[in-house]
């Protein structure tokens, strides 16, 4: 088991390394000259050149990359123009926003977490619940309703649903304030009311996939031998369905959920844009638009970390849920 874990962690690190290299290279292929972003109109060529030098943009790519990675691991000195000493997980200095990238991330990461985590809980409960009910009541109107609901959700787009929700609840009925982010520690009620539309929109769309998946899985498991055996042995229905069937049916759901949540944590670009909330996703989009390399690197890496971690976690969960996997 620990061997398996070490192997997984090694390949995960390798993946993150590759992501960072690719992002770095891609940035230097970007059409924008990063320096123009930080220097307003009347910049003469000499000054631009000096700024480039200060930022190390004239160094060879490899040493720039090495410097960046060193900053993450040990911290580094960025020079007075960039806020001086930058401590251990040093993500660099953004010359577009004029702040340390780690500060930016510290500001926007809680926003994305506040959107994704409650939404994920909501969509998992809703999706798996619907899927199970429709599998157990197969062929009834309840089942058909659930299928209809999930197909509708799977066919809708978030920005569309979001726009309609905004129109109805914020602009017409005025039941909710314009979506915004408040820290949960400052004012939990405001936190919830500002984000609830985003949760609902995400949950509606995502739960659809889970309802379909868990219904299909549940049906397949219910027809399998061990469930029939358990029923034949006289175990009570709830025990069989709850303990045996659900356990087996949930495994593939966990895989997809891991990837989805990991992906969403890396930035809900569309959600944040639709509701006008500045989280990781919007920050990343802004950074790409303004050619802000340190911020792009940071957001892409964080997104990748979430996905990769989710992958590892899913593998471990898999082994915990399904003993067959442990035999590998």
């Amino acid at each position: 088991m620990s061997r398996f874990l070490i192997k997984r962690l090694f390949s995960a690190t390798l993946t993150l390394f590759a992501v960072s290299v690719l992002t770095f290279l891609m940035f230097f292929a970007l059409p924008r000259d990063p320096v123009t972003g930080m220097c307003p109109k009347n910049c003469n060529p000499e000054r631009l050149e000096r700024v480039r030098d200060d930022l190390g943009l004239n160094d060879p790519l490899v040493s720039q990359y090495a410097g960046y990675m060193k900053g993450i691991v040990t911290g580094r000195d960025l020079g007075s123009a960039q806020g001086g000493r930058c401590d251990a997980p040093c993500l660099g200095w953004s010359y577009v926003t004029n702040e340390a990238v780690s500060d930016t991330i510290a500001r926007v990461l809680p926003v994305t977490l506040s959107i994704v985590i409650p939404a994920a809980i909501l969509w998992l409960l809703l999706g798996v619940g619907l899927g199970m009910v429709s599998a157990l009541r197969r062929g009834t109107w309840l089942d058909r309703m659930a299928i209809g609901f999930s197909l509708t959700g799977a066919s809708l787009q978030l920005y569309f649903v979001g726009a309609v929700l905004l129109l109805v609840f914020v602009y017409n009925l005025r039941l909710l304030p314009v979506p915004s982010y408040t820290s949960i520690f400052d004012n939990p009620a405001k936190w919830a009311s500002g984000l609830v539309l985003a949760w609902v929109a995400l949950a509606f769309l995502f739960s659809a996939i889970y309802a379909r998946l868990s219904r299909a899985q549940m049906l397949e498991t219910l027809s399998e031998d061990f469930v029939r055996t358990a029923r034949a042995k006289g175990l009570a229905k709830p025990t069989v369905y709850g303990r045996h069937a659900l356990r087996a049916a949930i495994t593939p759901v966990v895989t997809i959920a891991g990837l989805d949540v990991g992906g969403a944590l890396g930035g809900t670009v569309i959600t944040e844009t639709t509701f006008g909330i500045q989280g990781l996703g919007r920050t990343a989009v802004d950074a790409v638009r303004s050619g802000d390399l340190p911020t792009i690197m940071a957001t892409v890496l964080i997104a990748a970390v979430f996905v990769v971690m989710a992958n590892v976690l899913v593998d471990l969960l898999y082994a915990a849920i399904d003993p067959r996997v442990r035999l590998r």
């Binding site: 993946t15 990837l259 992906g263 957001t299 996905v307």
Partner: peptide
């Protein structure tokens, strides 16, 4: 690796 790259960004 492909899955880890944030597609939209």
């Amino acid at each position: 690796l492909t899955l880890a790259m944030p597609f939209l960004i």
